[in-house]
Amino acid sequence: MGATTQQVQTDDGTTVSCTVIEGDEPAVVLLHGLAGSSRELLPTARALGGRRVVLVDQRGHGLSTTRPADTSREAFVADVVQVLTTLTSQPVVLVGQSMGAHTAMLVAAARPDLVSRLVMLEGNQGGGSEADHQALGDFFRSWDVPFVSRAAAVEALGDGPLQRAWVEDLERRADGWYPRFDADVVQAVITAVGEERWAEWESVEVPVVAVFADGGMFTEQQKAELVARGRDVRRVDLAGASHDAHLDCFDAWVAALRDALPDAARQLEGKRGSRA
Rank of each mutant, 00 (worst) to 15 (best):
Q267S: 12
V28H: 06
V119M: 08
A47E: 12
Q267T: 14
V209F: 05
S149P: 01
A153W: 01
Q134G: 06
R234K: 10
R231F: 02
V167M: 01
R231Y: 03
L94D: 02
D132H: 10
G160T: 15
S149E: 02
V83Y: 09
V233F: 05
P146F: 00
F250D: 11
A276R: 15
G33S: 11
V115Q: 04
A252E: 13
A151W: 03
I21G: 00
A239V: 04
T86I: 09
R67S: 06
D132P: 01
T4I: 14
V77N: 01
T10G: 05
R141S: 12
L94W: 00
E196M: 12
Q187A: 13
T219M: 09
Q267V: 15
T44W: 08
E225A: 06
Q163V: 05
W177S: 03
A69Y: 04
Q221V: 09
S72R: 15
V211R: 07
E195W: 05
T103S: 11
A78F: 02
V193I: 15
V119G: 04
P146C: 00
R235M: 08
A245V: 01
E25D: 15
R51A: 15
Q187I: 04
D113R: 11
G158T: 10
R172F: 00
M1N: 12
V208T: 13
T15Q: 14
S98H: 07
G96K: 03
E220A: 14
A69E: 15
E200D: 15
P68T: 12
R59Q: 12
A174N: 01
D11M: 06
E205H: 05
V204A: 04
V227H: 04
